[in-house]
Design a protein around this nucleic acid. Structure first.
Lengths: 224, 224
DNA sequence: CGATCCTTTGAAGGACGTCAAGGTCTGTGG
DNA sequence: CCACAGACCTTGACGTCCTTCAAAGGATCG
């Protein structure tokens, strides 16, 4: 089994943020760039900032002590992540590809919420959306077969990207760790969907996918 | 595979609430009693009330079209459930045993939250706690082995009940559908923990359990 | 005390994981 | 421009953990 290893000698969040913006430290809104695979924050670290993806993609995950990994969510452009009710982050997050994020001091957001009920409401709304996603994902992880999981994943990406052609930023291993499978099983499921005419590959990598038959794709993940 | 069937000819929430209290309909707080296996509300129904368990236990679950079931949470005494950000309930909930719930009009709660920031905060806090539980459960469902899941379940129940002796209200099938396993696998895992001296049964049913060795139980679910 | 429900246990099967090999694409340096 | 290395994906063979199927033993309740 492939095992992820938690880097123990990592600088803290603030230290690992390489400045790529000219904004002053006291200003609330700053943009930062992360290289592919760079950690944005680690599970258990103090939650200082809230983040929004401007370009790229982010994975957030938990590890077991022996290196098994479960990705809880992918954050795509415009998605907000890193919001916590407690003092600490509950996931580790990494840039899947080169990624630009905008960050807000959690503190200032909290203050804003105190004064503005609309901010408070959107905070609740955001948390609720995350909860709903997690609830759906529990059903997937607990009860769906491999093909159903992959079909559901493709539909989710299809829905979220809005474009006709899926250009997945993440590799098969990431998909596998999101779906609770191995990368080989993901590959086999994608192959099967391909051979059944549900999708085709465009470009030279296998990450650019066009859904040919949405109805049939749906039929592989009958939820209701 | 055992398949659950969704009862289509069920009365709506209000209709199915048998009055067991003398409070007037206009009063906000009412108590209701549900028999074992009685549905409290169904997935997709309008969310009219928010509930708190006074006695008994509740399971909330989602079904796939072919009857596979995933229980997202058990609600024990004092737990609040049925809070939704949207208009509809996202789970079906049933009484695991004879259960008394206290219910509040969602509407009035929302109004209260508008005026009182403390209510608003506790609403967010509650939602966050549910999210955190779901996040942990995704890791369990996606990456843990059968014994690890059962060990984690027993630890969760141990933590939540506070008493020395676990008196599980739910059967093996419910536990299985919570852990993404079959009831046979749950039974085997419990048997194994029993034979290894981690727990013992008290009383005549196999639902009353005393944890003999918390340290060893912990070792079956090394998360970090 | 028979009927039903719940749980345990055994045996067999299957879906997914593991291991391994080979292919494609990319980047780098000769 | 080509050789080579490395990352990533696919595919096959085999193994294993969990499911499925089956039977039997308590517990509860009429």
């Amino acid at each position: 089994m492939f095992a992820y290893r938690k880097d123990q000698s990592r600088p803290n969040t603030l230290g690992s943020l390489g400045f790529t913006t000219t904004s002053k430290p006291t200003v609330n809104l700053s943009e930062f760039k992360y290289q592919r695979k760079a950690e944005i924050f680690g599970e258990g670290e103090p939650a200082v900032y809230v983040y929004q993806v401007k370009r790229g993609a982010v994975r957030s995950y938990k590890l077991l002590n022996d290196g098994r990994r479960q990705i809880g969510a992918f954050h795509l452009v415009d998605d907000i992540f890193g919001i916590e009710n407690g003092a600490k982050h509950r996931f580790t997050t990494e840039a899947v590809v080169e990624t630009i994020v905008c960050l807000i001091r959690r503190e200032s957001l909290q203050l804003e919420a105190e004064r503005d009920a609309a901010v408070s409401r959107s905070l609740l709304r955001l948390t609720s959306r995350n909860l709903e996603h997690a609830e759906d994902h529990m059903l997937l992880l607990g009860r769906k077969t491999a093909v159903e999981r992959v079909a559901a994943f493709l539909q989710e990406m299809d829905r979220r990207t809005g474009t006709n052609c899926l250009s997945l930023p993440m590799g098969r291993r990431d998909i596998a760790d999101y779906l609770g499978l191995t990368l080989e099983t993901v590959s086999r499921a994608v192959s099967r969907l391909h051979s059944e005419g549900v999708l085709k590959f465009v470009g030279r990598t296998q990450r650019e996918i066009v859904i040919l038959n949405r109805e049939k794709l749906q039929s592989f993940d009958l939820v209701n």
